[in-house]
């Protein structure tokens, strides 16, 4: 493996992880609002489901995406099987519930006094929710960074959904697996070092942000 290939792998890794974190953040925000501010039996049931899904084995998400998007699957006509898009979808499935399960308990805890105060002022609904995210900005940022860290470290979902195709869908984690199987331990260690550095950086940042909040 030469430097160009390594840079390409790092590039694909970052594209997949940043895209999936961004999409998962956009989905987790309204989902957390619904779970944290909503009432009723359905919402309670949904809280349990999302909490359970926050621990979904990534291999299950990968398998689901593979089954749906391969050429014989129900969504095969989309032509996204073994592509970066499929990898992003699989990672979104893994990290959206994780991010939501970090945010909604905090919303639940603060909602009583917060909502009563906001409605009493009175503030409009959009303003109330904007304020809620502003009040929890450090927690939100921490959730995003934890989601990114999980996406970076994840191997099973991207391996199944992307197929680990050299030059196309090979990311750091799948490349480490492949090179290890080929006996190229030095290359595997170099990539593991890069992966650990990125994941550590995201996690340290998440801890700092959480402490600040």
């Amino acid at each position: 493996m030469d430097a160009v290939e390594l840079i390409h792998i790092i590039g694909i890794t970052l594209v997949v992880c940043i895209s999936s974190t961004a999409i998962a953040s956009a989905l987790a925000a309204p989902l957390s609002l619904l779970l944290g501010m909503g009432d009723g039996r359905q919402v309670k049931a949904l809280r349990t489901v999302v909490t359970a899904l926050s621990n979904i084995p990534p291999v299950v998400a990968g398998l689901l995406v593979f089954m749906l998007t391969n050429s014989d699957g129900p969504l095969g006509w989309l032509g996204i099987g073994f592509s970066i898009t499929a990898m992003v979808v699989a990672q979104v499935m893994v990290i959206t519930p994780l991010m939501a399960s970090i945010l909604f308990p905090a919303f639940l805890e603060m909602r009583g006094d917060f909502l009563e105060t906001c409605k009493g002022i009175p503030l409009r609904t959009v303003k109330i929710y904007t304020l809620l995210f502003r009040e929890c900005k450090y927690l939100c940022l921490s959730a995003v960074l934890i989601g990114f860290g999980r996406a970076m470290a994840e191997v099973a979902a991207v391996s199944l959904a992307g197929g680990d195709i050299k030059g196309q869908t090979r990311v750091l984690t799948t490349a480490i697996m492949t090179t290890t199987h080929q006996g190229e331990f030095t290359q595997a260690f170099v990539m593991a070092g890069i992966l650990i550095a990125i994941v550590l950086f995201a996690n340290i940042l998440a801890s700092r942000v959480k402490e600040k909040g």
Binding site: D113, E116, T117, I121, P122
Partner: peptide, 9 residues
């Protein structure tokens, strides 16, 4: 109406 609760946020 505006309302100030006993323990505002």
């Amino acid at each position: 109406i505006s309302y100030q609760p006993q323990h505002p946020y």
